[in-house]
């Protein structure tokens, strides 16, 4: 203990660390570990049977694939939105800036119902896709739409401050060296914001994996096709199969944790490469 303390001049290390551990225990560690205890009732064989059953595997696949696509879409368009909000001034900019956070504030069920209505084959937008035989609502595409909606703010909000930091001077320097706009973006701006994009992507992904409220209204919830894992968990709970529900939860938890760990590693690596 004293070895750590010797390195810091900030007071209150013991108190702060103690509080952090207590807080994380009450909010995160104890609830999550109780998941493992509940699942333990099944034994390893029972657990394995649950998480490898066809329907569970299919739902996990739907959850993670759609979440990945949605987070990817958000990363791409999030960069553009952040770019527009930072680099240009135009009337109504503050309103657009506020609009970005709206998906956070809206109850997810409201978002799901609204999206389902609009993207249904007879809905405001869905009808045009239906004319080309593309169904959005009640398919995995609908899930992606909902997940994109709820994950919108993450990339925008993580990239914005970093983009502000990329001085106009650096871009001018690049231009005076003969670089065109695309070269400037590809070689100067993108490498600078990449760690932030990754961070935003990871958050949007995590949010999408856990999303329930908005998805169930638009997904159609057909087993093996558009049924997400969180829905399956709720279904098992309704059948009083608590251990089965926690088993799926643990499978999601482990996969999510591995994914986030990997993305964080990538982010650490890329920002280290930036010499910062």
């Amino acid at each position: 203990m004293s070895r750590f303390k010797a390195h810091t001049v900030l007071p209150g290390f013991n108190l702060a660390l103690g509080f952090t551990v207590l807080y994380l225990s009450l909010i995160v560690l104890i609830p999550l570990s109780s998941l493992f205890f509940k699942t333990a009732e099944l034994g390893f064989g029972g657990f394995w049977d649950v998480v490898t059953s066809d329907r569970v595997v299919a739902s996990l696949r739907v959850t993670f694939v759609t979440s990945f696509i949605a987070a990817g879409i958000n990363a791409f368009f999030g960069i553009i939105v952040a770019w527009v909000l930072i680099r240009y001034t135009f009337p109504g900019k503050r309103i657009i800036d506020a609009l970005v956070d709206l998906p956070f504030a809206l109850p997810t069920a409201v978002a799901g119902i609204t999206l389902a209505t609009i993207y249904a084959p007879n809905g405001l937008i869905g009808q045009y896709f239906a004319a080309h035989d593309i169904k959005i609502a009640y398919t995995p595409i609908g899930i992606v739409v909902a997940l994109t909606f709820i994950g919108l703010p993450f990339v925008v909000r993580t990239v914005q401050p970093v983009l502000v930091d990329v001085e106009a001077e650096v871009e001018e320097a690049a231009a005076s060296l003969g670089a065109g706009r695309w070269d400037v973006f590809r070689r100067i701006i993108f490498p600078a914001i990449f760690p932030a994009v990754l961070a935003g992507f990871a958050m949007a992904l995590a949010r999408a994996i856990g999303e329930y409220g908005s998805v169930i209204f638009i997904a159609g919830n057909m087993p093996y096709i558009s049924e997400i894992a969180p829905l399956l968990i709720v279904a098992k709970l309704e059948q009083y199969d608590y251990a089965g529900a926690t088993a799926i939860a643990i499978a999601m938890l482990v996969i999510s944790f591995a994914l986030l760990l990997f993305i964080n590693g990538l982010q650490w690596w890329s920002s280290r490469k930036g010499g910062r």
Partner: peptide, 21 residues
């Protein structure tokens, strides 16, 4: 002609180096 076509070298007060390179 814009900056990249002028063949002018520019040195800034705060260097403006590309810090990830």
């Amino acid at each position: 002609r814009d900056a990249r076509e002028r063949n002018v070298g520019f040195v800034f007060q705060h260097y403006a180096l590309f810090r990830h390179m």
